[in-house]
Amino acid sequence: MKLCITSDGKDLDSSVEETFGRSPYFVIVDTETLETKSIRNTAMRSGHGAGIGAAQIISDEGAEALLTGIVGPNAFTALKAAHIKVFEGASEFDSIKVALEKFKKGFYKEATVPSGGPGGGRRFRGGRW
């Protein structure tokens, strides 16, 4: 399965980014072959609809599942329309590698409803608190 993990950098040692739409990078890992690819999130600085734009990017990349901190309602609707599974609860204190290990052990459960509010990423990126 092609799993997309939100990331603050390009490789497996980067930290997980907890927001989806405003995540700087996406690391896409094939969970069988462990082949990885990273792409920049060009929707990150959108004035509106970063989550939907981000969903378009990972859908175009053929992602089948997403692992992140939280997903807002608009992005969630887009991801569902593209049949991309959503796993929430990843922590920024984990590297992509650690998050991937946890994922394989079934640490994260699939989200059936969105947990974040729209525009939530914009608040997040203002700074950690």
Binding site: G51, A55, S59, A81
Partner: peptide, 23 residues
């Protein structure tokens, strides 16, 4: 249409026609 939208309001799933999701 998706590319023209400055607000990312439209989304095109891999297998379908664009849908209006955003604002």
């Amino acid at each position: 249409c998706v590319d023209a939208c400055r607000r990312n309001a439209l989304f095109q799933p891999g297998d379908g026609v664009p849908i209006l999701i955003g604002d």
